[in-house]
């Protein structure tokens, strides 16, 4: 059965003919996108082109708005997430999201990290030491452990923005998501914070599939293996990052990269 020529791994995210409307306004047009597993893909495009919309469709958070309509399909790891038997909570568990503005919960650092795990581990007895371990692992992975290990019980909202954003990434890890969606995760940070979070994202590569929206061309170039360029709700170009930047196939891509869209 196995055909070694074709890669047997399904794409982490595969959209087919995805259209999305906010009320009467169509924000996504026939998006067909395959995001490969285990790599970092960056999503670039001018403001308002639908990057966040696409990202938010991948864990169905858009639905909460009530007036959003979607056609087409999105498969995550080969499963259609809009299929009727799909449990939303399980989708969210597999697909973690990091927002533009760090949004730690108004709880202690420790409780922030264990929040998701506590939700999903209800009914199982988890020992205290195991919980401590989970918190430590997650914080270590986001390179935050050393600076917060002595103040795990302070409010997370008192951390610096950079630390908050790292914490927001850390709290996704204990539930072991497969895909991390990041919507301009560095845009609220100063250059030092940006560098630190970028470094962290790079560290997470391989273990997670990462789809990251950025307005920072240098960041996309530095930190991603593939790049997707969108324009007014459509995917224009998708390829290896260096190809997209050095040898774009479409004029619009070239124009955008050279800064002609602002």
């Amino acid at each position: 059965m196995a055909e070694p020529a074709v890669a047997p791994v399904p794409a982490a995210i595969a959209t087919r003919g995805l259209n999305l409307w906010y009320g009467d306004f169509q924000a996504l047009f026939d998006v067909n996108l395959d995001v490969r597993q285990g790599i970092i893909t960056s999503l670039i495009g001018p403001s308002g082109c639908g990057k966040s919309t696409l990202l938010r469709s991948c864990n169905r958070i858009n639905e909460r708005l009530g007036y959003v309509r979607t056609t087409g399909s999105i498969e995550i790891l080969g499963q259609d997430i809009y299929a009727p038997e799909v449990e939303l909570v399980q989708v969210r568990k597999q697909v973690g999201m990091v927002f533009q503005r760090p949004n730690p919960l108004p709880l202690s650092i420790r409780d922030n990290v264990s929040f998701g795990h506590r939700l999903h581990a209800r009914g199982h007895r988890v020992s205290r030491s195991r919980k401590e371990e989970l918190v430590e692992d997650a914080l270590r992975k986001v390179l935050l452990w050393d600076s917060v290990k002595d103040r795990l019980d302070t409010l997370a909202t008192e951390l610096s923005l950079e630390e908050q954003q790292k914490l927001c990434i850390a709290r996704l890890l204990p539930v072991k998501p497969a895909v991390l969606l990041m919507d301009e995760p560095c845009s609220a940070l100063d250059p030092k914070g940006t560098a630190a979070v970028e470094e962290l994202i790079w560290e997470l590569r391989g273990e997670f599939t990462i789809l990251i929206v950025t307005h920072n061309m240098a960041q996309a170039r530095r930190a991603s293996e593939e790049t997707v360029f969108m324009l007014i709700g459509k995917v224009i170009e998708h390829g290896l990052t260096e190809d997209v930047f050095l040898n774009p196939q479409h004029r619009q891509t070239a124009d955008y990269i050279e800064g002609r869209y602002g």
Binding site: N59, I61, Q90, R92, M97, F99, N103, L105, F115, V175
Partner: peptide, 20 residues
């Protein structure tokens, strides 16, 4: 933002309401 953070971690509406 707090609600969205919770929903994104897979919390239901009620869990979000009760805990946050």
């Amino acid at each position: 933002a707090f609600r969205e953070a919770c929903w994104n971690m897979g919390a239901t509406r009620w869990q979000t309401i009760r805990r946050i």
